[in-house]
Structures are given as C-alpha cells and as structure tokens.
Computed example of a mutant assay.
Amino acid sequence: MRVLAFGTYDVSRHPRVGVLVAGLRDRGVEVEEVVRPLGLSTAERVRMLQQPWRLPLLVVRLLRCWTSILVRGVRAVRRSPVDAVLVGYLGHFDVVLARLAFPRTTVVLDHLVFAGDTARDRGAGAGLRGRLLDGLDRLALACADVVVVDTEEHAALVPSRRREDTVVCPVGADVSWFEAQQAAPAPRADRPLRAVFFGLHTPLQGTVTIAQALALLADRPDIEVTMAGSGQDFERAHALGRANPHVTWHEWIPAHELPALVAAHDVCLGIFGTGPKSRRVVPNKAYQGAAAGCVVVTGDTPPQRRALGSAGVFVEAGDAAALAVALRRLADDRAATAELRTASAARAREMFSPRAVTAPLQQALARRHPPSTSLQEHR
C-alpha cells in the first residue's frame, strides 16, 4: 500500500502526524510526504479565525504553500499512484485542496482539533463566529473519506452519518521520547522530586490550577517544578506560582530539547482544565511524558484513565489542593514513585508507540484497499 502525506502541517509544532507517518511506515506502508509548513501555531490560526482582518495574511500564506504542495503532490501521484492521501493535523483547509486535487483517491483527515470546539474552550466561540467555525469543521469532514480522531469522546462529535468512517488513533509519541527515556540517568531518591509541565497556558491545560498547587507547595524544597510554555493564562499563573521559590519558569523550550528535558524529571503534569473539551482529550504530554519514563499526574477524566490506566495518577480537575497532595505523596514515597515510572514507561512501549497507535488506521485502509486491489499490486 502507498500513501501520500499531504498538507501544510509542521511536525516540529504538532508531532501527531509525524507519529502517524512513522507508524504506517513501521507497518510496511510506503509513505511519501509532500509538505510545506504554513508556519502558524494553533493559537495563531485560531486568532486569525477570531479576527477577520487577519485573514488576508492566512490566505496569502495558504496560497503560497498550496501552490507548492499541489505541484509536488500531482507529480508524485503521476510518478507512482497512491491508495490514499493523508491530510495532517490542522488540515481544515488542506483537506479541501486534497479532495479537489485527488477526487478519486481515498482522503484521510487527521481531525485532532475541532475548530469550533477549540475556539469555545478559549472563550471565543460564541455567536456567529462559533457557527462559522462549526461550519468549517463540517466542510472538512465532508471532504474526507476517512476521519481520524484521538479519543472516543472526539469521535462522538463527528456527525452520526460519518461515524462508520471514523477511526480512533491515540496521539502517541514519536521515537525521540522513547530514546530520551533510555538515555536518561537512573532516578535517585536522594534528590528532590522533579516535576515538569510543558505546553500552552490555556483553560484546557489548567495552568492556573497548577500554579495554585505550586503556591501550596512553597514549603517543600524537596519538590522542584519546571514550567515551560506561554499563552493566555501565563501571566496569571506566573503571578500565583511565583510564591514558590522552587519553580523554574520558561516561556519557550525548543521542541528538539523537550524529550531530554522531560526525561530528566520524575513527574509530567498533564491537564487540569474543567471545561467540556478537557473531558474529551488526552494531551500530547500525557503520551510523551509516559514515553519519557515519567509518572503522569493529570485530571481525572474518562479518556485519560483509559489511556494511562493504573500507571497514571489522577486528581479532580481544577482542584489545586488535590494536585498538591498528589505531588507531596509522590515526594514522600519515592519507592512507589519509581514503580509508577516503570509502569508508565512499560505502558507507553505497549500502547503509545507509532506502530501501536496506527493499527486502527492501517486496518481501515486495508478494508478499503485489500491486497488484491491495492495499487501496490500493479506497480
């Protein structure tokens, strides 16, 4: 089977599609990538959709990227036909181009983010704007033959008539996180417990809750915390958490440095938001932190419990006191913490590797293109 990975995605910013590509390749699928990153983060794309006067910049960038990938994509397919076109994460617009450019080919959309849902989570999806973003989601889904989401809860947001075309593939973690765990020094009980958070400071992440917990831990020099990231709640979180002298704040860590940084910690903090979206997702950092060999401490939600099982530590979302208690317990019982780290790494190897998470997608493609009819047979 041959697949064309197509779009304006950026693996350095959004590693999800890189995991899918690596997993399919590991499963014997030939994948060619035709990509030109748009160069905009999720927050920047959402802001442009919220502020219409910014849209001309998006349109100009999009047309430049589309010209490049369209020419290269058509050449690639003419050179060697493909069974499917995989449109990477944040591909709401790219999937329209893919549908027009490859009308008779199976189009797969990695729909990790619903635009309307994300805007509402960030407090900007009410009224006409929200309806327009919901319309954009519907258009994107209509252009795809196969829709890939990351949780059963996100699958429930797909219109019922498209559910049979929807595949659930966990986000997973790329190989760099597993390699970082292997290269990390062995944990030591004679040093402080080290916890890390990385990501955007948005309501979904619940960094205000994290900061409130940090303030409650100011009397614990044996608990050191690294906070990496920026976003709409950063100033408030920093103001609340700076009472704790044992916290190091970074507004930015290069993506290639994150795996080693996280693997040097005992605990990876997940998400603690209380909004509806927080109850539907398992964040990248939960998979990546586990792959790096950390105990993942995160909000107690159904999809996160399914993903992490007994290897995770769960606290009530939005409850700073409960989070502080969980970190105190991990610091007080380092033997139990070491066991949880081992269990976390084992679960990641079993369930979060690129090969593991892409099993449902490969099966869905195989049903559409069985070996007897696959283009691979005619090459």
Rank of each mutant, 00 (worst) to 15 (best):
P221W: 08
D222S: 10
D222W: 13
V225N: 04
T226I: 10
T226Y: 10
G229R: 00
S230L: 09
S230P: 08
Q232E: 15
F234Q: 06
R236D: 11
A237R: 00
A239F: 03
R242F: 04
A243R: 11
N244K: 05
P245Y: 04
H246M: 07
T248V: 14
W249T: 05
H250C: 07
H250M: 08
W252T: 07
A255I: 10
A255P: 05
A255L: 01
E257R: 09
E257S: 14
V262Q: 01
A263L: 02
D266V: 11
D266P: 03
V267R: 03
C268T: 15
G270M: 04
F272K: 01
T274L: 06
G275N: 14
G275I: 05
P276H: 13
P276E: 11
S278C: 08
R280E: 10
V281P: 02
V282C: 12
V282F: 04
P283K: 00
P283I: 03
K285Y: 08
K285R: 15
K285C: 06
K285G: 09
A286V: 09
G289E: 00
A290R: 02
A291T: 14
A291Y: 06
A291C: 12
G293R: 03
G293L: 01
C294M: 04
C294T: 07
V295M: 05
V296M: 08
V297S: 00
T298R: 02
G299E: 07
D300S: 12
T301H: 14
R305E: 13
R305I: 12
G309M: 09
G309N: 09
G309I: 11
S310Q: 14
A311S: 15
A311R: 10
F314A: 10
R328V: 08
R329H: 14
R329E: 15
L330T: 02
L330H: 03
D332K: 08
A336W: 03
A336E: 14
R341S: 06
T342L: 15
T342Y: 13
A345K: 11
A346V: 13
A346L: 15
